[in-house]
Structure formats: C-alpha cells, structure tokens
C-alpha cells in the first residue's frame, strides 16, 4: 500500500515518453529562435549578407559602375605579390605595437589610481571616459591641432622646455606616432573601465591576508592583483588587437595615410581602392585577407590564454 504511490509516480513519468519530450524540445527551439531573432536578424542582414557579397565581389573585377567581370582568385594573387600589401600590413602592425602597450599600461595606471577612495573620484572616472564616447572626427581634429608642428600646444611646450619639436603628422617618421598618441588617449577610458571592474572583483580578504603575511605593495600587485586581473587583461588585449587591425577613422582624418603613404593602413587602403581608384574587387579581397589575419590572431590568443589567464 504504502509502496504503491511512490512506484506509480516514476512509472507515470517514464511512460510520458518521447512524444512529449520531442514536442517540448520543438517548443523550446521555437522559443530560442524567438529570443534570438532581435539580434540574429540584424546580424544576418547587416553582417552576414555584406560579408557574403564582399566575398563574391572579391572574385570579380568591378569599378562600381560597370558590370562585374569574374576573374577567380586573381585579386588575391595580385595582393599577395604586391609590395604595397606588405607595407600597409607593416604600418598596421607598427600601429598596434605602439598603441597596445600604451593604452594597456595607461589604462591600468588610471584604473589603479581611480580604484582608491578619494574625493571627486566619480568626476575623474567620467572625465577619463568622455573621449571614448566622443566622435573620432572631433578627437582627430583636436589632436591634429594639438600636434601642429609650428603652432600646436605640444610643440610650444616642448620648445619652452628646450626639447626637440618633431614634425608630427607632417613628417613620415612621426605620422604614425601621432596617430598612436591620439588613439591611446581616446581609448584609455575604455581600458580603464574594464580593468576597474576587474579590480573591484578581486576579493579584499586576499589582499588583506597578504598584507598580514608581510607582502609589500609591489608583491601584492605582482602576485595577487595582476594574476586575478588577467581575465580582464585578456579581454582588453583581444578587443584592442581587433580594433587595432581595423584602425581607420583617425588615420583618415589626421593624415589621410600620408605623408607619402607613411601612415597608410589596411582599412585606409581598402577605402582608397574602392572609392578613389575604382578597384572594388581588389578592395574586397583585401578585406578578406584582413579578416583571415584577425581571425588567426584571435584564435592564437584564445589558445594561448590557458597559459596565462587565471580564473579565480
């Protein structure tokens, strides 16, 4: 008697079998699609479709006006043998090599400083974040003006303290450093916010315990803060690298790729090929080369993260 109830119940459930479960799974799929739709549809329309179209265009010779002429992989072989390709990728890597350390170290320093309790902290946090939400055109024009070789603020100050005054964006040697400086300044706030969130997630008792055990400030930073910050660092590095490969706006406004092509980057070349030289096919092929490079670099980072990213 007493046993019947428990035994019938499981039997019932095991008898409600496949059809219901399958029906439920079908209903779940519908719900999944329903909730995915708001982001999936735009992604399909505005990302996947243009990507497919650009892959198609990259196999053609097309000046935007004429009918497209199919030429297979010619655009790719042309790009891979063209010395310009090497130089624009070189400039882009140079940009990343200067920008990434600067923006990470600067953002970390800011995050550490603004993680301390002091009066006006929110104001400074907001102030440093402001450039992130400012239009690139505005920022680039302001920096072009600050770095004006003859009457810009930076050179005026450098001159006053007796330091050399570089030609900045008018000098091929200094054009890329000018762009790096402006970019790092603009993105500092973004890195700061991510790292600040990371810092606040570090449990206070760990640092407290280390202090009690006699660890110095540097030791606590080196052996507790930095390792526990590594997931945030990983995120910042991945995002900054992707953005770095796609650098364009600031270059277009500040130097237009010049002087003498010294600051021409990959996306700048894609723009010029399409809109100045009417070589949309080549430009699309170059977009795909860039996509493959970014995909490869990101995949390497995700593999590499196991070695250095600590998950608390």
């Amino acid at each position: 008697m007493t046993l019947t109830t428990p035994t019938t119940a499981p039997r019932l459930t095991s008898r409600t079998p496949a059809p219901t479960r399958r029906r439920r799974r079908g209903r779940n799929t519908a719900w999944v699609l329903f909730f995915l739709a708001p982001s999936a549809i735009p992604l399909l329309l505005f990302t996947a479709t243009p990507m497919g179209a650009s892959l198609w265009v990259s196999l053609h010779k097309w000046n935007l006006l004429s009918p497209m002429e199919f030429i297979g992989l010619d655009n790719y072989t042309k790009l891979l043998t063209d010395p310009t390709t090497r130089s624009i990728f070189g400039h882009t890597l140079g940009y990343i090599a200067g920008y990434l350390p600067l923006v990470y170290v600067g953002g970390l320093a800011l995050a550490l400083a603004l993680n301390q309790a002091f009066k006006g902290r929110s104001f400074f946090r907001a102030a440093y974040f402001l450039p992130v939400v400012t239009s690139w055109v505005v920022v680039a024009l302001v920096w072009q003006w600050l770095l004006n070789p003859t009457n810009g603020l930076v050179n005026t100050v450098l001159g006053a303290v007796g330091l050399p005054q570089p030609g900045w964006w008018t000098d091929p040697q200094w054009a890329m450093p000018s762009i790096i400086l402006a970019s790092a300044w603009k993105d500092l706030g973004f890195v700061m916010v991510i790292l600040l969130a990371g810092l606040q997630a570090i449990p206070g008792e760990l640092l407290e315990a280390a202090r009690v055990d006699g660890a110095s400030a540097w030791q606590r930073f080196r052996h507790i803060t930095l390792p526990l910050l590594s997931p945030s660092t990983f995120f910042v590095v991945v995002i900054s690298l992707i953005n770095g490969f796609q650098v364009f706006d600031q270059v277009y406004v500040m130097t237009g790729g010049g002087p003498a092509g010294a600051s021409q980057v990959v996306v700048g070349q894609i723009y010029d090929l399409t809109f100045r030289y009417g070589r949309a096919g080549e430009a699309s092929a170059l977009s795909w080369l860039l996509f493959i490079v970014i995909l490869g670099v990101t995949a390497l980072q995700i593999r590499g993260q196991r070695k250095w990213v600590t998950h608390a």
């Binding site: 000098d171 091929p172 002087p259 003498a260 100045r276 030289y277």
Partner: peptide, 21 residues
Amino acid sequence: ESQQEMQDIVSEELGNAAAGR
C-alpha cells in the same frame, strides 16, 4: 585610365620634394 592614381602619385612625390624629403 588610372587617372586618380596618377594624380595621387604626382601630388605625393611633389609633396616629398616640397617637404625636403
């Protein structure tokens, strides 16, 4: 035929001369 590229090349090299490069 490659009008814009020719114009850019000539302007760029003249710019090199103007800047003393």
